[in-house]
Amino acid sequence: MHLSKKRTGGLTTNRSLSMYLLLIPGLIFILVFHYLPMYGAVIAFKDYNIFAGSDPINAIFESEWVGLKYWEQLWVQAEFRRAFCNTLVISLMKIVIGFPVPIVLALLINEIRLTGYKRIIQTVLYLPHFMSWAVVGALFLSILGTTGPINAWLQSLGFEGVKFFMNERVFPWVLLVSALWKESGWNTIVYLAAITGVSPELYEAATVDGATRMQKMYYVTLPSIASTIMMMLILRLGSIMAAGFDQVLVMYNPTVYSTGDIIDTYVYRIGLGQLNFSMGTAVGLFNSIVSFVLVISSNLFCRKMFGRSIW
């Protein structure tokens, strides 16, 4: 920063000016498509009836203020508090266990020497990303059902069968494993792209020092993609409240509500048949605040600790 300031003032301004010009289309875009519609968030504090005014915007003004009514309504429900905890638990499982998986996969894929084989593996691993949860849910049910192959195998070994979809302790793991299976391959793409950016000179230097491939992976590749990993982690924390609505809705059932019901599915159930824009907005706003706090603080943490961050 200091270095650039020491340069001639004219060059700096010129250089910056054209940079700001480049930003204009993007800024206009978020202004129009994101900031402008944000007035809509006030309906989280109103008893919004879309037909209350001459048009939906006018209806926002016409609707009555209710303050934090929707949050209070939710928090007094024990079922909601349980869903809140489940959301955090499932999300944290998916982050703590699920986040490193694509990194490890990317590092190992990178070690495959046969180029053709490597390409095929990459393509095959990301196939499940294109299946909807409806299809994936049915697949896991057929494998893990009481009459499925896994239970048949367990029973043939003399164990008792496991009701994967009806056991409240096992069910979160079913969610985790199916999510890993579906998305891990796809999530390697960013890391594989980052690995291609590692300078070959670093590898050559390591080779000269007599490093094995494993050592190169650990001492060269991993540090080189560290900033990408950090950035992905901060972004991932931003979606902590999204524990997987589509997935849970397809896979859960009333017997595993105690550990499988998340905020989104709970709000979906109580909102069935009711046209309540305000409730949805209130929950969305709550999720946004939680995510925002996490992203801001993790970014600050990374900047202080490692000197690198998103901003």
Binding site: G26, L27, I30, V32, F33, H34, Y35, L36, P37, M38, Y39, G40, A41, I43, I50, P56, I57, G238, F277, G280, T281, G284, L285, S288, S291, F292, V295, I310, W311
Partner: peptide, 19 residues
């Protein structure tokens, strides 16, 4: 930060539809 903010907050379905 201006960009990150819109990644996390949105006005919901109604205003975007109206836009």
């Amino acid at each position: 930060l201006l960009f990150v903010f819109v990644m996390l907050f949105n006005g919901g379905m109604v205003p975007t539809y109206l836009l």
